[in-house]
Design a protein around this nucleic acid. Structure first.
Lengths: 254, 254
DNA sequence: CTCTCCTGAATTACTCGGACATATGGCTGA
DNA sequence: TCAGCCATATGTCCGAGTAATTCAGGAGAG
């Protein structure tokens, strides 16, 4: 398919068949959705703005109208845009966005994360996670405890400055949420946690002091193992507050 | 495609062009997404099941492949299904669903709501709303208070047994969330609240005692007006607990 | 003889282009 | 001022062709 001469018209050097890199494994429509979502979250299209028509925009992005439309459907599903005949596709007010959708969160944190929004997320996390720890203390079984313990061991081995260590940290929190036996709680906190850790990694590169977080985690674990709900809740609260302090310091610096 | 005989044959009244009722104002692709989402949430397609191919399924639903695909994109955006080439599109495990997406919640509550899931949502609400009331007590301004007061007046005029009364109730809660100055909190609680009130209306038809909820609401309002965070939080907790009792009673009866 | 790796064929979703349908905001004429 | 037409943008459909991935079968090494 390189320069195989001609299909019909020989003198047409097919203008480089558009080596489509397409970022990573993502399909074309997904890539378009990603791009548009990013642009909207970054504020390039403000709420109330109306996108140029399907044909025009699809052409501009060099994709077919089908691919473009499917991307718009995705954005619509996440409450970012609304699309009506004759009116066109317009960006909805921020209050209609599904801010807790994992993709939306990812888009929000892709660029320079909005400081206020990060604060809001931490506030939500500070509400939900301690309560979750309390519930976990009441409902955990032996398997839950084992998973938490293993995660802590992993955290000890690799520190939080390595990817493996952060993965173990995530596992620990996930194990706690799992122990609450509450799917909604798990979904919520998983999204927030992912987004927040998104900033953690980003915070690390700001040569912050790797304060040893293990003792705090251990305190949460002990309380949950002892079925002490209020202690678990309080310990988790400390954990979240410390994380907020770190992130705030790293972000305020810029 | 039925008994096509002739495309060009003019005297063919084309078998009644299928007056498409399409439910309500919804576009065709939206309707398909609705239908599929409903079916998945209802458990007609279990996690791990793989849908019959695009061509087959689209044909079965009597829509074009484009419409079907756009619907699937929506479901994919909400984490309900995954679609890979050669494997087909399959329903994802429940843990990957965006349970807090407004549409997903609506689909979940469309049929017979799962008792456990309702309990989980109330649990989440019991965590979030009291905390929100506490924050509102600290941050509310005069405008917030006025909106709340007006909503309470409306609630007094019409009772909770009328739609207007319930709308006023929603306004009251929304005003509180608005006063927290936290978008994420607002998005979350708005979704949950909507879903929960979805069961409220449904609970009413079970001739439950219309216990007067106004005093409880008033207590929350007073605490917020007085900037008493802990009192506001506690009062809201009472409110949520009572709502849970009502709903549990109404649901347990069946 | 067995196991592994490579290659190709089949299947499925993905992308495209173009035609037609539908709805709606705005213009026009009474 | 208002009813009704009309331009326009999204919605729906179709059919052809592309790309990616699984699976089976065969060649080669141990």
């Amino acid at each position: 398919m390189r320069d195989d001469s001609a299909m019909d018209d020989p003198n047409q050097p097919p203008v480089e068949p558009t080596r489509k890199p397409r970022g990573t494994g993502r399909r074309l429509n997904g890539a378009v959705a990603h791009k548009l979502g990013l642009a909207i979250l970054a504020g390039e299209y403000a709420p109330g703005d109306t996108l140029s028509g399907e044909i025009a925009f699809a052409e501009e992005l060099e994709v077919s109208r089908s691919a473009y439309r499917e991307a718009v459907q995705v954005l619509m599903a996440k409450g970012l845009v609304e699309s009506r005949t004759k009116t066109g596709t317009r960006v909805l007010p921020r209050s209609r966005w599904n801010l807790l959708d994992p993709d939306v969160l990812a888009w929000a944190f892709a660029g320079e994360p909005d400081v206020d929004f990060v604060r809001n997320l931490f506030e939500l996390r500070a509400i939900v996670e301690p309560a979750a720890a309390g519930l976990a203390a009441e409902r955990r079984d032996k398997v839950d405890l084992k998973v938490m313990k293993d995660a802590l061991a992993e955290m000890r081995r690799h520190t939080l400055s390595s990817e493996l260590g952060r993965a173990a940290d995530r596992d620990f929190h996930t194990a706690i949420l799992q122990a609450t036996r509450n799917d909604a709680l798990l979904t919520l906190s998983a999204s927030i946690g992912a987004a927040v850790n998104w900033t953690t990694q980003f915070k690390q590169r700001g040569r912050t002091l790797p304060r040893n977080a293990l003792p705090d985690h251990l305190r949460v674990y002990e309380a949950i193992a002892a079925s002490d709900a209020s202690e678990a809740s309080q310990a988790m609260r400390v954990l979240v507050d410390l994380a907020l302090d770190d992130t705030r310091a790293a972000m305020g610096r810029r």
